[in-house]
Each structure stands twice: as C-alpha cells, then as structure tokens.
Design a protein around this nucleic acid. Sequence first.
DNA 1: CCCTGATTCGC
DNA 2: GCGAATCAGG
Length: 201
Amino acid sequence: MSWTDERVELLKKMWGEGQSASQIAKELGGVTRNAVIGKVHRLGLSNRNSGTAKPAAEPKEKPAAAPKPTPAAAAAPAKPKPQPKTEPARPVTPEPAASAEGRPATPARRQIIPAGQPLPPQPSANEISPEALAKVNEIEKKAKRLTLMELTERTCKWPVGDPATEDFWFCGLPVQQGKPYCDAHVGVAFQPMSARRDRKR
DNA sequence: CCCTGATTCGC
DNA sequence: GCGAATCAGG
C-alpha cells in the first residue's frame, strides 16, 4: 500500500481528531501503526509536546563511531497545533445537585439496555456516585464507538445506546486490567457497597 | 501485559 | 520516502 492522497488525508483527519496511530492504521488497512507514526512525522504534524518535558536529551552515543551530523534537525518550524481539547458545549449537567430524582442521565443517548443483555449489570440507575457518573459522561465523548465486531479482549465492552437503533456502540476504550470495561465504566459497573451506602433521601 | 507516540536507520 | 525495530513512557 502506498500513501495516496486519500490515505494521507484520512490520516491527517484522524490524527487531528486525536485518534491513535494504531486506530488509524486499522482504519487505513495495509499499514501498521508504525507506518502511520512514521508518516505522521514525515508530514511534520507530530509534536504534541507541552506538558511532558522532553527537552531534547542528547542522543546517547555509546560507540564513538558514526557521529551523525543531522544538520536540519534544529530548524523545525514550530507548528502551533491548537488542541481542540476544549469542551465546547456541555448540555449535560456535569455536577448533579443530587436533588430531586438525581438521575442526570445523558439527554439523548444511552437508553435502557433490554433484558437479556448479558454484559452490563446496568446498575440500578440511581445509586451511582455523581463522580462516577460524571466520569462516564466524560469518557463517553472519547469513546471509540466500536461495533460488536471490533471489540477485543481488551476493549471496553460497555454498550451505549439502544441496540435496536443506529445509535448504538460499545465504549471501546482500553479496559482495566482483567475487567471487561474501561476505567470509568468499571466505576459504575462494580459498585462497592460502601459507595451505595448513604443515599441522600 | 497492554497500550501510546518517538526515533533510528536499512532499504 | 518508507516502515520495522527499537526506544521510552503510561
């Protein structure tokens, strides 16, 4: 496979969306994540540097043999890449005041899972800690939105939406070691009894 | 162990 | 230019 314009564009698009290299590779097909990363670098749209201080540590040359001059290395034109990490709109109340029925379910998505669904112990809705709930609402924005077929042993199998409609997908984020769900969904799936203790009522 | 991106370097 | 191998981190 070669890097046709189309493929490069898809690469750019997905990379811009914050998709991981492996995911992009999977989408493109015929390439590995290494290939994707390599291309990304060649395209010059890599650096997501900011917090992680990676101050160009001098290459550790063990054998004093081939001093690679790498001349044009330092002349990298700083490409300001505005991270669209801003949370544009938040229609959902992030911090439920825990009053009234205290069920700040997501507006349109995530309905009830029909009976017979073997996967999620869809916790009795109510007694989930607001923190955990907020967390779930958070990560569901970042969910990979995988289809049933795309699930693997280590992708979160938390279903979202109504299986009978188009608006249905699995979280797909990396699972917590051993568990079938990602970090956030483990939080709502397995409720320690202590957590569901004092309900405000 | 799983994943992530970053870098190197033979092709 | 390409990408496997490797590196470095979470």
